[in-house]
Simulated scan of single mutants.
Amino acid sequence: MKHSLAYLTFALSLAFAVAPFFSGDFAGFASDMLPNPQINPPVQPAGYAFAIWGPIYLWLIASSIYGVMYRKDDVDWDTARLPLCISLAVGVPWLLIAQVSVILATITIFIMAGAAIAALIRSPVQDRWWVRGPVGLYAGWLTAASFVSLATTLAGYNIGFDSYGWAIAGIIAALTVAIATYRRVESSTYIVAVVWALVGICVANGMANFVVTALAITGIVILLCVMAMQAPRTPRTLS
C-alpha cells in the first residue's frame, strides 16, 4: 500500500516510546534471573545512562512525523524505514521479554541492533538530522546495550570468563562493531551514543574496577580519534 512504510514507522515509533509505561523501565536484568546472579555487573553503565532513551524516543517520533508529512514517497527514506520498522517491532515487547528470559532478551536485542545498524547504513544523506541523526543515536545505544546484555548473560551462566572478563570482552566487541559501522556510515550521533555508554561504564566502575574503567576510557579516546580522522574527508555525511 502506498505510503504504508511511512505510517508504519510512525506507529511503531510511537508504540516503542509508549511501551515502557506498560512494562516498566529497564536498567539491567534482575539478579535472580541468572544461575550466577549478576549484581551491578561491571559491563553495565550507571543507571543515569539509560536516560538516553528519552531523546531516542522523542527524536524517532519526530523523525517519523516529518517522514509522514514530507517524505511519504521518498524511496531513500523507505530503504531505511524497512529495517528500522523491524528493529522497532522487536523493540516494542522487549522490556516484557527482558523480565521473563535473559537469553531471549539477548537474542532479540541483537536483532534490534542489527536492524537498526542496517537502517543507519541505508539512511539518506539529505535530511540527515531527521533520519541519520535519530537512527544513529538509537543504533549506537543498541550496539553498546547488546554487548552489555551478552556479557551479562554469559557471566550469569558461568560460560567462559567471569563478569570482569566478559566486561572486557564486551567492551572490545562493542568498540569493534562501532568502528566498523562508522567506517560504513559516518554518523556522529552513533558514536555519541556509544561514548555515552562507555562514560556510564566508567562512572559505574570508577577506581574500584580500574581495568574496566581504563578500557572504557581508552575506547572513548579511540572512537573520538576515529571521528576526527574521518571527518575531514567526508564532512558532508556527518549527522
Rank of each mutant, 00 (worst) to 15 (best):
V192G: 00
D74W: 12
I168T: 14
I171P: 05
I97L: 07
Q38A: 13
C85M: 09
L120A: 10
V199K: 01
R122P: 00
L224F: 08
C225G: 00
G160Y: 12
A17P: 06
R233S: 13
I220T: 07
A139G: 02
G219P: 06
I117A: 05
G170S: 11
V212N: 09
Q126T: 14
G28E: 12
A216G: 03
L175G: 12
A118C: 10
Q99F: 03
V43S: 05
Y7G: 05
I117Q: 13
L224T: 02
Y57A: 03
V125S: 11
Q230C: 01
V148L: 01
A167Y: 06
S123G: 11
I52H: 04
L224H: 05
W59G: 04
A204H: 09
A173D: 11
L34E: 12
G114M: 10
A11L: 15
D73R: 09
T79D: 13
G67E: 09
Q44T: 14
D73W: 03
I159R: 02
M229H: 03
T234C: 00
R71Q: 13
G200A: 08
Y182H: 14
Y48R: 02
V185P: 00
A113S: 15
T234G: 00
A174Y: 03
G133Q: 05
P35I: 13
N205Q: 08
T9G: 01
V212P: 04
P83M: 07
A17C: 04
Y138N: 03
G54F: 14
G133E: 04
G219H: 06
V90L: 07
V131F: 06
L154Y: 10
A6V: 11
S23G: 03
L95R: 08
A169T: 14
F10R: 01
A30W: 04
G219K: 04
R122F: 04
V221Y: 11
A49Y: 03
W94V: 09
Y164T: 15
G24D: 13
S163L: 11
I97K: 01
I111T: 12
A145T: 12
G170W: 11
R128M: 03
A167P: 08
Q44Y: 00
W77S: 06
I121K: 08
T176P: 00
P35V: 12
W166A: 11
I172P: 02
P134K: 07
T9L: 08
T218G: 15
M227T: 08
S239C: 08
L60D: 09
F210H: 05
Y182N: 09
A27Y: 09
W53M: 10
A19H: 01
Y66S: 10
Y48M: 08
Q99S: 15
Y70D: 10
